[in-house]
């Protein structure tokens, strides 16, 4: 069959905005997930009595269920409870729910890796717990968990494809709707694959580079 170049080109504006939506959902979700993770890390580090087990429960629930189910629950089940959210809002909330848990685990591992002596020295020179977290623990834990954090940022960007299931007009949703409208399966699959390769392969290679650099650098230890 012939590749309809003209048709493929005519869809480009739609795909440009689709890439925009993908990046928008991805970066917002990364930001909100990071906020959730920092709060959880502080709770875990301070050892607040009731909140700490709650963080554990949240992390286990979010990490052991598929994003698709979390998304469907928010988008299709919450309206029955009187909470009606747009596809975009549902996507951000679901991705934050999942991403927050993953990033919490990474920060926790980073905090655990900070040597005890650092914390003890901090306490012995009279730092408050907040100062200790801000000036001693988090900077070191942040560097230690940097490769894993980057890996998860890219993971979150890739997971944005799943939110096509609730009609967020990102790359996959745009592909599917064009296929449904014009039956140009061949062209649309080619555009989808091309965009994904352009978007995700460089990220993946960059990640490999960062991992290698940080492994050799051994910052913070």
């Amino acid at each position: 069959m012939a590749f309809d170049v003209e048709f493929a080109l005519s869809t480009l504006p739609a795909f440009v905005s689709a890439v925009g939506v993908t990046l928008q959902v991805g970066f917002i979700a990364i930001g909100t997930s990071l906020c959730v993770a920092l709060i959880n890390a502080a709770i875990t580090a301070f050892g607040w009595p009731i909140l700490r087990p709650l963080v554990r429960v949240y992390v286990e629930l979010a990490r052991n269920t598929p994003l698709l189910i979390q998304l469907f629950f928010i988008y299709f089940a919450l309206p029955a409870l009187g909470i009606r959210l747009s596809g975009f809002a549902s996507a951000i909330i679901a991705m934050t729910f999942m991403g927050g848990a993953y990033l919490t685990e990474i920060l926790r591992a980073g905090i655990d890796a900070v040597p005890r002596s650092q914390i003890e020295s901090g306490l012995s020179i009279g730092l408050s717990r907040w100062q200790l977290l801000r000036h001693v623990i988090l900077p070191q834990a942040g560097i230690l968990s940097l490769p894993a954090l980057f890996a998860n940022f890219i993971f979150l960007l890739k997971e944005t494809t799943v939110v096509s299931a609730v009609a967020v007009p990102e790359i996959l949703y745009t592909t599917k709707s064009y296929i449904a409208l014009y039956y140009k399966t061949y062209e649309m699959l080619a555009v989808m694959t091309g965009l994904c390769v352009l978007l995700f392969v460089p990220m993946s290679l960059l990640l490999r580079l960062i991992e290698r650099r940080l492994q050799h650098g051994q910052f913070g230890s």
Binding site: S164, L172, T185, M192, C196, F200, M203, S204, L205
Partner: peptide
């Protein structure tokens, strides 16, 4: 490895499901 790591699983699913027939 790079292809399957970098490209999301859902994209692969669509590629195989809609693409293999054509």
């Amino acid at each position: 490895l790079e292809l399957f790591r970098a490209i999301p699983v859902l994209v692969w699913l669509y590629l195989f499901f809609f693409g293999l027939p054509i």
